[in-house]
Design a protein around this nucleic acid. Structure first.
Lengths: 219, 219
DNA sequence: ACTTTATATATTATCGATAATGTATAAACA
DNA sequence: TGTTTATACATTATCGATAATATATAAAGT
C-alpha cells in the first residue's frame, strides 16, 4: 500500500526546519529564537512559528521562558548520560513485550534493517547508519504495543539524533563496530530470549556511552 | 523563602481548566473540543485555547487530527496497564539515583509527606491522599537529578491523576492500605538500600494494579 | 441505483495588528 | 555615589478576521 499523503502544515514545516538546524548545529545552544524574525525568514506569520516552538520545547530542543523568549537548549555530557541511562531502564521493557509479540515476518524485517546498517557501515555513510539504527530500535518499540512508551521513545530518538550529530567524529572511526553491535540483539530476538537480548542491548548502550564519556571534545 | 508569584498566562489557565474537566470526567472520552466554543466559554480568543490544547495533546489527554479536530482521548485498562508497567521500568532508576543523592534532610521531608498521607488516609480524604502520594514520588524523581526522566514523570503523574479519578471507587475501600504501602519504601530509603526500596516500590505498584485489573467496572 | 461533481457549511490554520509584559536606559532623588 | 522612579523599546501573548481544509448534502451524469 502506498503511503498516504501527509498534509504538511506550515507549523510542521517550520518545526522540522528548526529542528534540523539545531541538530546540525547551525543553531547553537543559547541562541535566541525570535518568533517574528523566524516568521519573516520563512515567510509565514507568528502563529505557526509559535506552534513549532511549542513542539520543539516539548522535545527538549529549546527552552521557553514566558514573556522572555525561547532559546536553543544546551546538550551537555550530562544530557547524553541521561539519554543512555534512561534507555537502559526503558528499552528492556520494550524488548520483553516485543518478544512476546514478534512474528517470523518481523524477524525478517529486522534482519533486513540490520543488513542495511551493515551496508551503511561498509560505505562509511554516517547519516544512513544513523537512520537505520533508529529504524531498528523503533521497530522493537512498535512491536512492544505500548503507546505511552512509544511516545517517550519518539522524544528519545530525537535526542539520540542530536547526540549522533554531536558525536559523529567519534562514531566515524567505528561505523562497522556500531552496526555489528546489533547482531547479538538480532540473534537473541530470533531465539526469543528476552534476557539475552536485554544483555546484548545493554552492551550496545555501554559501548557507545563509554566512547562518548571519554571524549574530551564533548562537555 | 516565599514562593515566587507565577505569571499565569491565559493558555495556562485554559489548559488547567480543561485538564481538570477531563480528569474529573466532566469531559468524556470522544467528546469534541471546539476551539472557538471553548474560547467563547472562557471568554478568551482562539490562540490561547489552541496552545492549551497543544499541551493537553502532549500529555495524552486529547487527540488531535489536523484540520479535523481535537477529541478527549480514551483511557482504558490498557492505558492504565501501560502506566504501571512503565513506572515499574523507570522508577527503579529514579530510586537508585535518588539514594545516591539523598540527605538526612530529604528523609525528614519524605517522612513528613508520608505522615500527611497517613493523616489523609485516616480522614478518608481521597483528594489529599492522591496529592501527597504524587508529592512523595515527585520528591524521589527530583532527587534523582535526571532532567529527561523528570519530564517523563510529569506526564506520568498527570496520567496517574486521571487513573486515580477513574478508580476512586476502588481506592476508597483501601485508603489506609494505600498510604501504608509507602512505609517500606520510606524505610528502605532510610537504610539507603536501593534494592529493598525498588522491591517495596514494585509491591506498591502490584498492589494497586491488581486491584484495578480485577475491577469489572473499568474497561 | 450508483458514482461523480458541485455547493454549502463547519472548523481549523494562518494572518496582521494590538495589548501585555519584561528589559534596558535615563532622569530624579537621597 | 547609589538607589529608586520614569521612559522608551523589544518581544511575547492575545485578539479579531480571513484563508485553507475537511465534511455533509444536493445535483448531475451514467
Amino acid at each position: 500500500m502506498p503511503k498516504l499523503v501527509k498534509s504538511y502544515t506550515l507549523s510542521d514545516q517550520v518545526c522540522d526546519l528548526l529542528k534540523d538546524s539545531i541538530i546540525r548545529g547551525d543553531l547553537k545552544p543559547g541562541d535566541r529564537l525570535l518568533e517574528l524574525d523566524i516568521a519573516k525568514n520563512y515567510n509565514v506569520s507568528q502563529a505557526p512559528v509559535r506552534e513549532a516552538l511549542s513542539r520543539l520545547k516539548n522535545e527538549g530542543f529549546v527552552i521557553h521562558y514566558p514573556h522572555k523568549g525561547t532559546f536553543v537548549s544546551n546538550f551537555s555530557k550530562k544530557n547524553i548520560e541521561e539519554v543512555y541511562s534512561f534507555r537502559e531502564a526503558v528499552e528492556p521493557l520494550a524488548i520483553k513485550r516485543a518478544i512476546s509479540n514478534i512474528t517470523d515476518d518481523d524477524l525478517e524485517k529486522l534482519k533486513s534493517i540490520y543488513e542495511d546498517m551493515l551496508q551503511a557501515g561498509k560505505e562509511n555513510d554516517l547519516e544512513m547508519l544513523n537512520k537505520h539504527d533508529i529504524a531498528f530500535h523503533t521497530y522493537i518499540y512498535k512491536l512492544a504495543d505500548h503507546e505511552f512508551m512509544f511516545n517517550v521513545w519518539e522524544n528519545l530518538s530525537s535526542a539520540s539524533n542530536r547526540i549522533w550529530y554531536l558525536t559523529n567524529q567519534i562514531y566515524f572511526k567505528n561505523l562497522n563496530e556500531v552496526a555489528k553491535l546489533h547482531e547479538p540483539i538480532l540473534n537473541a530476538l530470533y531465539k526469543r530470549d528476552a534476557e539475552e537480548c536485554i544483555a546484548a542491548f545493554k552492551a550496545h548502550m555501554k559501548f557507545v556511552w563509554d566512547k562518548i564519556r571519554d571524549e574530551e571534545k564533548i562537555k
